[in-house]
């Protein structure tokens, strides 16, 4: 299954950093190796040397490479009980703000950003919210910009939506056309889309809520700590940090001034 060797992965990581400025040094090697191997097989390269040459020299292929070796699996209202907690315990505490700024870091194709927009809409807060959606991959952001998701997923998303405490119908928010669900323009209007690399880019605003889910599991401890510091710098006092279901700030350097909400969801408040 793993045709690519550890040494090959190191060579590619060096190339990416030296030639293209993408720093994968502190990424989980097991996942990188698996995904690089799969890409090598899918794209039918006759040898590693040719694969490497393509990554080094072909900028279009580089984009494909980065998109394929990073994980872009996401869904609407992923972990519905997490969204229920946002809906019931977090968003009401943001309601008094004149402007609500939320950062979705590593948002991939944006299903969770649209989910947040729906929560805000239902709380009557979307009109004064700004959702900053960032990812390392320009191509996934292009997909989000359209606000169009596969119709085949909507049954699952609709279940998630209702479990998260949604009382309307998810289909109120989109128009079905062929195999696509086209989400209402009004949801997308408050989403600000931009590339941002958590490894190398700095803080760009101050937020009341930062959502970064299933991104940090691909980083080693050092990089996780670096990103936690970036989030800490970007979060207002009393702001919230929301992570994936298997991620924690518990062992990080910022843990001292964060308090986890009173259930098992991975949401912390800066105190």
């Amino acid at each position: 299954m793993f045709i690519i060797k550890d040494e090959d992965v190191e060579l590619l990581i060096n190339d990416l950093l030296e030639i293209h400025g993408y720093d994968f040094t502190n990424y989980s090697k097991a996942s990188l190796k698996r995904r690089i191997s799969n890409l090598f097989i899918t794209d039918r390269f006759p040898s590693f040397a040719e694969f490497r040459y393509k990554v080094r020299t072909d900028n279009d292929y580089l984009l494909r490479f980065v998109e394929q070796v990073t994980v872009n699996v996401t869904e609407m209202f992923r972990d519905p009980l997490f969204y229920k907690t946002l809906r019931e315990e977090v968003i009401p505490n943001l309601a008094a703000r004149p402007i609500i700024r939320i950062w979705h870091a590593g948002c991939s194709t944006g299903e969770e950003v649209y989910s947040m927009a729906i929560l805000l809409k239902e709380a009557n807060l979307l009109h004064k919210s700004l959702l900053y959606a960032t990812d390392i991959n320009p191509s996934v952001l292009e997909k989000m910009r359209k606000g169009i998701f596969p119709l085949s997923q909507m049954k699952q998303y609709s279940e998630n939506y209702h479990t998260s405490g949604g009382t309307s119908s998810l289909s109120d928010y989109y128009t079905a056309q062929y195999e696509w669900a086209i989400f209402n323009k009004s949801l997308g209007e408050k989403i600000v889309i931009s590339t941002h690399n958590l490894v190398s880019d700095s803080s760009f605003n101050e937020f009341q809520l930062i959502v970064c889910r299933n991104v940090l599991i691909y980083f080693d401890k050092d990089l996780q700590n670096k990103v936690f510091r970036l989030f800490d710098q970007s979060l207002e006092t009393l702001g919230y940090l929301a992570l994936g279901s298997k991620e924690t700030i518990k062992f990080s350097s910022i843990t001292a001034h964060y308090r986890q909400l009173g259930n098992k969801e991975k949401i912390w408040r800066k105190v």
């Binding site: 989980s28 996942s31 698996r34 699996v73």
Partner: peptide, 15 residues
Amino acid sequence: LLIENDKTFSLDVSE
């Protein structure tokens, strides 16, 4: 669930 060379676990939400 993946396993790193240093015999630690990595979780992964890929396809």
